[in-house]
Structures are given as structure tokens and as C-alpha cells.
Design a protein around this nucleic acid. Sequence first.
DNA 1: GCGACCATGTAACATGTTACATGATTTT
DNA 2: AAAATCATGTAACATGTTACATGGTCGC
Lengths: 185, 185
Amino acid sequence: MFTIGQRNRLQYIILGLLGQQDQTGYDLTKAFEHEIGEFWQASHSQIYPQLQRLETAGDITHQDQITGEKLTKKVYQLTAQGQKKLAAWVSEPSPELTATKDEFILKLYFIKSANDPRLGPMLREQTQLHAEQLAHLQERQREVFPNQAAIDAAFGHYLILEHAIERESHYVEWLQRYQTLSNNH
Amino acid sequence: MFTIGQRNRLQYIILGLLGQQDQTGYDLTKAFEHEIGEFWQASHSQIYPQLQRLETAGDITHQDQITGEKLTKKVYQLTAQGQKKLAAWVSEPSPELTATKDEFILKLYFIKSANDPRLGPMLREQTQLHAEQLAHLQERQREVFPNQAAIDAAFGHYLILEHAIERESHYVEWLQRYQTLSNNH
DNA sequence: GCGACCATGTAACATGTTACATGATTTT
DNA sequence: AAAATCATGTAACATGTTACATGGTCGC
């Protein structure tokens, strides 16, 4: 029912990011940390080899660019083939459900009784965590989408940020609903 | 911010399942397919080696049980050490956010305009998918928790099923909110 | 000159998926 | 007798994380 699949999504994300603007592996690494870090993660040790493979496959090319005296950066850009590949991926169906591997949810599964003394502290800890994440996402929304023009220019990003905010908001609400249980810690 | 970490959660889930009742690797495999498939997945090729490692570590033991003429099953059970390890894991904080790697969300990120003709079909496809999942979860809830006694006996499971239902319910609602966009397919 | 950051890689290891492999039991 | 299911494993491969490794640039 849930298939993650070995589908190498990373390559498409890189293509998508390069579709927005030419950039280096370092820039892409930063983008994964800040720009889309809420939705996908990848470290530079995955990104650099993947860039090499994409170039070999003919989906991207690069120009060397010198900074200062001799620091050589590789600025990557999509080829026509890469653009086609990206568009094909986006248009393709996504018929698979996502497996959310949430450790807290898993631990809850093994809590048998509403009177278990561990329940209260666990719920409080998660409320704290998700309330912080909610605040972070709301801050991001204010930052990235200060006006309608920003929304119109990156509508998909706006949608998924809104979705993430609502999801966290619901998560916190659900946690708080049972917060009063076992307040004895 | 999001750390998945190489924490080998599988071992704890196996301990948790064995804590509920002694069973074979085959039974555990089935449990991952049906019982907790909504929350975690693992295939038999992960489970059997992990059982061997847990036994070597002294967290579980097994008795051979003969079925029919000569089919030998290994029925695993927790040791006192395994029980301790399980309890320690549940009590431990879970301070890390879960990275939800949802391919559809990722694709949306690269949709720049509300007028993109791909948007409507994508939203409809996902609505279908998540509405089905929602129905499946609701069916599970009716099946597993037909009365208050069932809830009292597996309270954590009840909580996470409720959470998953509400999450899917919100997901569908959010998708439908933008469903009217680009109805030209 | 020093520290923070820019910039690019590889190595080792852990985890997860798909395929390969075998044989017994039960149901139709 | 055949098909479905029970039952247990290994192998090959893909993905993802942490650590190792190196050197340049920029601001103070």
C-alpha cells in the first residue's frame, strides 16, 4: 500500500532547483537547508555525486566560474533534455502514499492504557516540538509571502507552506486534546 | 532541524510487537503489512536478520515449534533485558521532527503559477488517493475499535489512528479547496 | 592573521527495497 | 494435483547519514 520506491527523487529536485536558476552544488546544499528544508533534505555528500551523474546523463552542464584568485566554482544549468525530464516528472502521476515515519507515533502505539504515566510527559514534549515547528513555518510564510505578488510568483510553494502550517496546527490541537491525561509526572 | 538519524527503530518495533505476544518472523512480517502498516513498514528481508541480531544481543530468545511433519518455526519472545530495552526506548524523548517525503508536495513546489494547466489534474489525482486512504483508515477504526473496551485495551493505537484519520481528512479538505482551479483538462 | 563561510569532493556505514532461493503446509 | 499461503533465509542494489579530507575567500 505504501511504496517508497527507489525512484531517485533527488535528481528531480535538483533539476527543479536548477530550473529556477543556475547555481552551484554549494548553492543547492544551502537551498536544501533553508529554502525547501521543510519538505525535503539532502546533504552535500549526496548532491555532488548526483550532479556528476546528471551531467554524465546529459541533463545538466556546467561552466567554471572563478572567484577571487583561483577558487573555481561549477555553475550548473539545465540542458533542453533536463528541462524535458523535469517537466515529464512533474506531469507524471504520483499514485503512492507517503510513509510518515514518526517515532513518537510509533511509541504511542505501544502505550496500552490511558493511565500510563508516560503518556502525559510524552504528549507535552511533542506539543512543545510541534508548536515550535508551527511558529517556524508561520514565520517562513510571512517572510516568503509578504504580499499577493509573491504568492502569484510561487503559487505551489505557497500551497505547500499553507498545507504544512495547517498540518502542524492540527497536530498541536490533537496533542492538546489529550494533554490533560496523566498530569502527574 | 530534521534529523532522521540512523537509530535502528526497527529493533524497537519488533521488541514492541513481541511484547504484545510471542510470535515468528513470519507473523511479524504480516503485522507490518496489516496491523501497523499505516505507521511503519518493513519487509521480511529486514526482519529476519534483525531478529538474529536481537537474539545475539540477548534481547530475545526463541523456541522451535514443529508444524505438521517437519516445518520448524522459530517463535520469538522477549527476555527481561529486551523488556527493559523496550521500556527505555518508549520513555526516551523523541525530540526530532519527522521528514515527510511526499512526492506530490515536492512537485507542487515547482508549479509556479495558479494557472498552470497541470495543477487541476494533480489536485484531483491526490484527492482521489487521499480520500481512499481516509476511507481505509475509517474502516480500520470501525474494525479495530468497535467499542469502548477495545479503546481502553489499546489506547495508544486508538490515538494514532484518530490522528491519522484527522490528518487525511484535513489533507483532502485542503486539496478540495483548490480543486476548482484549472478545471480544464 | 584568524575565524567564519565558501566550495568540492570521497569513504564508511546504516538503512531500506527488490530479487533470488528454497521448501513445507493447507486449501481448493 | 495445483495454487495459495506459511516459513526462513541471502544477495544485490539504492538511498541516506556521518565522518573524513582539502583548500580558497572574505570580513574584521
